[in-house]
Design a protein around this nucleic acid. Structure first.
Ligand SMILES: [Zn+2]
Ligand SMILES: [Zn+2]
Length: 1014
DNA sequence: TTAGCCTTGAGA
DNA sequence: TCTCAAGGCTAA
């Protein structure tokens, strides 16, 4: 307590601001002030859970959250403030993610969009098969849209070639805990020749021989086991399974580990706590969940795409048939089963499973065994081992005894499936994607939890770009907690493409290149091998289901890429002072170094050196909204038509637009050769070689790096090598520079009006900041367009790109209204039933938990209503919500205050125009800020979809800036600087948000708003 | 391997 | 028909 007081003593200035806040709070809600004081007084123990403080500590935010949550759930006695701090934040994040998952689930209509898009595209063989195929591929490789992908897969299964290749891509890239688990129980850390050791107690020798794992089905004995250990399960967390109890992941913040346990620990369902990070001895006994012998990996991928109907869990036919996703299910689906049976039952089940010699077909006996527990019991953790039947299949409740829950996983290859059981056959006609949620309830909590079971969606199973080669990218979390592989084998096995995918997965995915450091050498990795020169028939539809042999080269590339990504995870771009970014956003080009300004104007392609540039400025340059920069750029850029085009890579004389940017013939050819041949370069220096005409051949690595940085589009290099013609609109839409436009713009530059922002013909990307240029991860370039919806959005925007012309006022008003409607939800900026809450007799912590929970729900709901929700990858939405929720909440409450607060109408006015103006400004600034932060999130991901998603974000941001400009020009023609003024206020809002968060009073604006309207 | 020049072909 | 951005060719 004393230490915490000292810490607060160091924050005298913060306290002053807090005092001001409280002075505002005092007349309105005394109880709230009391709560705040209580917060302040008892703020010991837990560190801040916000991202910034987490980074200050040198750890990831997940780590901090996990630590706090671990403390919370470990049964420590926490003060109300601590409880709130941990649980509120945790559940906010958890709620966000889970709700985002719901959002993903509910995106049914986009399936149709996807389908129609594909149908349209297929009419053009060439586009579909070569140029656009990559677009479709990556569309399907996105994690956050798994259900969409799933449906798309089902619908387009006739196009086997594409489906198969993409499926394999999904297998490769989707981070899925169950995939990892299914990979088997080999302990990767155990040296060869040594017996594996129990990750819990350290015993060795009792683990089944890993080498025999894959041959296990005939023996009946499970050769190895990998256990899911839920360390410090968070009360209220949800575990997502499907009806076959196939484990999907965790909705929430419980850390799930895959461990190899000894038989003793496995039999007890306990974990001795050898790896308890906090040093606390952990021993919990839970009823083990046994995961049936796993299916072949290809089945896993398919089941992931379309989980089969439940077998025994679901007793609710209506629920089984009520899914919106009802599509034909591929026959060979064999999801792994997560069954809830007693240890005795498990053993018998394992024994009976031996009768199935074929790992593929289902085993009725096993299915029956799985159904044997009455009545169709869900996986149950009851802390004491007694299964508690659940009358309904959805959700399924798991009770556990914190702090450890162990889910037993039988890692043997699948000898058992469930389709042939009577129950399953009944449900076979049911929609495939019935998901069940498993809610983990802490036994130490007797009273109803402040956080109700949430509607569950599968967690984003690979919430990362398809670039990432393995299940667990460094940035991947299972809803807030980074999975940690303690036992097992990772990457477990080479990915087995689905039958028929042989030879077609190659280059069927969009090329992706990871540039970074491995073993101290700057090098690069292609995530996909080079295409076969011959190519395959475009419309090939017949496939031989011969399992392809894994490509060791690919595996090594994966591991290498994983290494790079893991290393790069340590070098997240630090969050720069937001002031610079916002000023740049507002058009303050002077913040940029001179050469960057020139860069932006393309009057001179600066060399790669960014020495001398401050990290702040450089950092800002990464997230610099180029549209705004373009808009506010001096008029001198229009003079460029008098000058010869300069290569944006080497400053040589450019010959035109090549692969998205203006380059010389040399750089054009260099880029083409590199992509076509998947060349791998290394840099003998630090990766910051200067690229000029004279020096461009000295370092291929840095030259190619610059190509990527400057925006050259990998997809523009045609897979089929067909000359002539034009690239597809999807590819073209990725271009930084539009063909023809850069000529027209030059000619018509002098006649361009201010209201009509000129199309910037030659606009290089700002160079990376030095710490990234010289960092471990230099650049991750992924040319995948993201999802089908994104592709469609791009195709549409290619037709009518709002950034090409001023937004008509009517359209601007329409778009503004749509934004305002996002804020029109009930209690968007207030606390519902505040009086009731204040008079509630519940504990303060519970009250604040409720408030925090409602705030989170509001933020999520707001996000879901955004008009461009479908145009941005869900992972960006999710991540942004997790990291920026406090800022957007302040923006929301500030907007509300402007409209409805006491000071909103200081001069009492009935001027609706004025009201609308305030509303417009608030909503527009908010949305622009939001999108710019998505840029931030995007840039921080490292696994970047640099050519597509970033363009998408810029396009959306530009769209709304144009809308606001258009409106302001109409509404305030006498005030031309209004736009800049609005954006200049953002740093203040940001600072306020951070202050509120740090002082744990982020709820205050909501409470104030509630108090004022009463 | 590079890069200058040529051919090609979709779209304006 | 023209444009221009693809790929191809080939001398250096
Ligand atoms: Zn060049
Ligand atoms: Zn170099």
């Amino acid at each position: 307590m004393e230490q915490s007081d000292e810490k607060f003593g160091e924050r005298a200035d913060n306290r002053d601001r807090d005092r001001r806040l409280k002075s505002r709070l005092r007349p309105h809600a005394p109880l709230v002030a009391t709560l705040a004081l209580l917060f302040r007084r008892k703020c010991a123990g837990l560190r801040m859970l916000n991202v910034s403080s987490a980074r200050e500590q040198g750890g990831s935010s997940c780590d901090v959250r996990g630590a706090a949550l671990g403390k919370l759930s470990a049964g420590d006695k926490l003060g109300p403030d601590e409880a709130f701090d941990a649980s509120a934040h945790a559940h906010q994040l958890q709620t966000m993610t889970s709700t985002m998952g719901i959002m993903t689930l509910s995106r049914g209509p986009c399936d149709l969009d996807n389908m129609s898009l594909f149908q349209d595209l297929k009419l053009k063989r060439r586009k579909v098969d070569s140029r656009c195929s990559s677009d479709g591929i990556m569309t399907l490789s996105r994690g956050p849209c798994d259900l969409d992908n799933m449906s798309l897969f089902q619908d387009l299964k006739l196009k086997r070639r594409k489906v198969d290749s993409r499926c394999s891509s999904d297998v490769r890239t989707h981070g899925r805990l169950s995939d990892l688990i299914a990979a088997g129980g080999r302990d990767r850390e155990a040296p060869r020749g040594e017996r594996p050791r129990c990750r819990s107690c350290g015993r060795s020798g009792s683990l089944r021989a890993p080498a025999a794992r894959r041959r296990a089905p005939r023996t009946g004995k499970l050769s190895s086991r990998l256990f899911l250990v839920i360390r410090n399960p968070i009360p209220g967390d949800n575990y997502v399974i499907n009806k076959q109890r196939q484990f999907y992941g965790v909705i929430g913040l419980s850390a799930v580990f895959a461990m190899a346990l000894c038989d003793v620990c496995a039999a007890r369902g306990t974990h001795h706590g050898a790896h308890n990070a906090s040093g606390r001895r952990i021993c919990a006994h839970v009823e083990p969940l046994s995961l049936s012998p796993r299916a072949p990996r290809r089945h896993i991928s398919r089941s992931h795409l379309a989980p089969a109907a439940s077998t025994a869990t679901c007793t609710n036919p209506s629920a089984a048939s009520g899914s919106a996703v009802s599509r034909p299910r591929p026959a060979p689906l064999a999801p792994r089963l997560l069954t809830a049976i007693t240890p005795h039952g498990r053993e018998s089940a394992a024994d009976t499973s031996t009768s199935s010699p074929d790992p593929g077909p289902p085993s009725p006996r096993m299915a029956e065994a799985g159904c044997s527990t009455p009545p169709h019991p869900p996986p149950v953790f009851d802390g004491g081992g007694s299964p508690s039947p659940s009358p309904a299949c959805h959700p399924t409740v798991i009770r556990s005894a914190p702090p450890y829950s162990v889910i037993k996983f039988e890692g043997a290859p699948g000898s058992v499936k469930a389709e042939s059981s009577p129950a399953s056959s009944k449900h076979d006609a049911a929609p495939p994607s019935q998901m069940s949620s498993v809610k983990l309830e802490g036994t130490q909590q007797e009273s109803p939890q402040p956080y109700r079971p949430r509607t569950i969606a599968p967690p984003p199973p690979g919430s990362h770009s398809s670039l990432t080669p393995g299940p667990w990218p460094p940035s991947a979390c299972i809803n807030g907690v980074k999975p940690e592989l303690i036992g097992g084998n990772f990457p477990p096995q080479p990915i087995e493409p689905k039958p028929g995918a042989r030879g077609q997965t190659q280059w069927r995915g969009t090329p992706a290149v990871i540039m970074g450091e491995s073993g101290g050498v700057r090098t690069m990795f292609w995530t996909l091998p080079a295409p076969t020169p011959s190519g395959e028939p475009a419309a090939s539809a017949s496939h031989t289901p011969t399992p392809p042999t894994p490509d060791p080269a690919t595996c090594s590339e994966e591991s290498a890429a994983r290494l790079l990504l893991n290393l790069g995870g340590e070098l997240r771009r630090p969050r720069g002072p937001p002031l610079n970014m916002e000023l740049l956003w507002a058009g303050d080009v002077s913040q940029l170094p001179a050469h960057q300004q020139l860069h932006a104007l393309n009057l001179s392609a600066a060399a790669g050196s960014v020495a001398g540039a401050s990290s702040v400025a450089s950092s800002s340059s990464l997230t610099l909204p180029r549209p705004e920069l373009r808009t506010y750029a001096p008029e001198t850029e229009r003079d460029e038509d008098e000058q010869p085009m300069i290569c944006m890579i080497c400053e040589d004389k450019a010959t035109g637009l090549h692969y998205g940017i203006i380059t010389c013939e040399g750089c054009k050819g260099f880029f083409k050769r590199t992509v076509q041949n998947r060349r791998v370069y290394t840099c003998v220096a630090d990766g910051g070689c200067e690229i000029t005409k004279a020096q461009r051949n000295r370092c291929q690595y840095c030259r190619f790096k610059k190509c990527i940085e400057q925006g050259m589009v990998l997809q523009a290099v045609r897979e089929d090598r067909m000359p002539g013609g034009r690239n597809s609109g999807a590819v073209y839409n990725l271009y930084k520079v539009k063909y023809k436009k850069h000529k027209k713009a030059n000619k018509a530059a002098t006649t361009t009006s201010r209201a009509s922002p000129p199309e910037k013909p030659k606009e290089p990307l700002p160079p990376l900041p030095p710490h990234l240029v010289n960092g471990t991860i230099l650049k991750t370039a992924l040319t995948n367009p993201s999802e089908v919806v994104h592709l469609r959005a791009r195709l549409e925007s290619a037709v009518s790109s709002s950034r090409d012309r001023a937004v008509p006022l009517e359209r601007a008003l329409h778009m503004i209204r749509a934004l305002i409607d996002c804020d029109a939800m009930e209690d968007i900026a207030t606390v519902r039933h505040l009086p009731d809450l204040l008079h509630d007799t519940s504990e303060i912590g519970d009250k604040l938990c409720k408030i925090g929970d409602s705030i989170v729900h509001k933020m999520v709901a707001w996000t879901k209503q955004l008009p461009f929700i479908m145009e941005i990858p869900m992972e960006i939405h999710s991540k942004l919500l997790m990291e920026k929720w406090h800022e957007i909440s302040v923006l929301t409450t500030a907007a509300y205050q402007a409209m409805h607060g006491k000071h909103a109408h200081a001069p009492p006015s009935s001027d609706h125009e004025q009201d609308f103006m305030q509303e417009v400004s608030a909503s527009q600034v908010k949305i622009t800020y939001w999108i710019d932060n998505q840029n931030y999130v995007f840039n921080g991901m490292h696994v970047q979809n640099s050519s597509s998603a970033q363009v998408e974000l810029e396009s959306i941001q530009d769209r709304y800036v144009q809308v606001l400009r258009s409106y302001l020009e109409h509404a305030t023609p006498h005030h031309p600087g209004r736009l800049q003024e609005l954006f200049a206020r953002i740093p203040e809002i940001q600072a306020a948000a951070n202050l509120l968060l740090e002082s744990k009073m982020f709820y205050v604006p909501f409470v104030l708003n509630s108090a004022e309207i009463r």
